[in-house]
Design a binder for these strands. Structure first.
Lengths: 217, 217
DNA sequence: TGTACATCAGTGAACGCGCGTTCACTGATGTAC
DNA sequence: TGTACATCAGTGAACGCGCGTTCACTGATGTAC
């Protein structure tokens, strides 16, 4: 994007300016964690960043532009999860791999919760830029899962009635959404540990085609 | 709620007024379907309802109040889904029951998508009224599913590593969230039919402890 | 090694729109006799 | 069966705050010689 190199009035952006831009991004992320999107104001962002409204417009056209930038950078972190699918979960260490993935996913979501939430809202409301950002982030993970389902079906481990891509999307959806319920789950007595174990169990069963049977690790 | 009986200025609400209130609710739901929450204005609601801003405040303290009322009534419709759990899915008609539930759920979500989305957003942002509304709607379904998992475990059909309540919550989360991805799934070639079949397959496998094996229906 | 000039970066202060909100009023409906 | 009065319901018009946005300016940093 060429906009990265120029400020609103056409000035070239140097390192000092980059730092200011970064402060605005960080401030937005921070406010998003505290309050909701609906209360997010330009003035508050600049106050939080220790700068002025006029400065904001040097770097962003409007609040949506900051949100989109945050979404994109949060999305990049999702790519790290791909490593957990470098090999299939069909062997004896499958359950451990499933657990590792769930752990990583929970960590990822925890770190970027506020931003991902608004990204998803915007995407669902039909904004194409946010939609693209979401797809770009989630698709590689979904594809990796879908590939495993296909191979599992070829090996006779997984029910052929499940469509690989839809199955993978369903698993990602489950993870994404469930973390929103974490608080309620806690009140009902579900610990973080047993949530992890349950999610890993469902994933393992669905993507690798077998049950944990017995715990090991 | 006593507020149902009185307008903002203390007047008693008769049937004509109830109709106006209803029009405001309907108008809000309609606007919510067209645009997002972030563009929802009192003035637009009243214009859509064919009335005036002043009238709005006779019935609702603010926009949040309308949204909450809509959330609550949408939530009531979720109760109808409970019927699909009146008996367990362990018999030969289990797969058919799973499919029927998925169908019903997809229909429910389709009808109330816009409202449920904002309800969930508000709930996740920490608003207790919306949180309660969500819990009130989802909990009975989750409990019904969890009961089935428990019985499945007792019968040796389901992996004991899965915590019943968390498992049920995960299934609901999957359904809720996946429907947001429906459009993308369509673009990737997943039909509504095969989505239904896949979701039913995962649910059946997770809640009843077995695979479809062969299609029947 | 200092000075002048160009460019980068930040902002105070104001403008004005849009929207939430309210008040004082008109109109509609119901009911008593 | 009509008239008067009470109550229910709706709204025009205005007020004013809050916020997005911009302009003309000051200050900071870099560089040429």
């Amino acid at each position: 994007m060429a906009e990265n190199l120029l400020a609103a009035d056409g000035r070239v952006i140097g390192s000092r300016a980059q730092a200011t831009r970064k402060r605005l991004l960080d401030a937005t992320a921070k406010l998003l964690r505290r309050h909701g999107v609906l209360e997010l104001k330009v003035v508050d962002i600049t106050r939080e960043a220790g700068t002025s409204p006029a400065t904001f417009y040097q770097y962003f056209a409007d609040v949506d532009a900051v949100l989109l930038a945050l979404s994109r950078s949060a999305g990049e972190n999702e790519q790290a999860l791909l490593a957990l699918f470098s090999s299939d979960w069909f062997g004896p260490d499958g359950p451990a791999k499933a657990r590792a993935f769930v752990d990583a996913y929970m960590g990822y979501w925890h770190d970027h919760q506020a931003v991902l939430r608004i990204r998803n809202l915007k995407a669902e409301e039909g904004d194409t830029a946010f939609r693209r950002s979401r797809t770009r982030a989630a698709l590689p993970v979904i594809d990796a899962m879908a590939g495993m389902v296909e191979r599992g079906q070829a090996a006779g481990r997984i029910d052929d009635a499940l469509e690989p891509f839809a199955t993978a999307a369903a698993m990602v959806a489950m993870l994404e959404r469930l973390l929103a319920y974490q608080k309620e789950l806690g009140q009902r007595g579900t610990t973080r540990e047993s949530l992890r174990e349950t999610l890993a169990g469902i994933l393992y069963q669905t993507l690798a085609g077998s049950a944990f049977e017995l715990d090991e690790d």
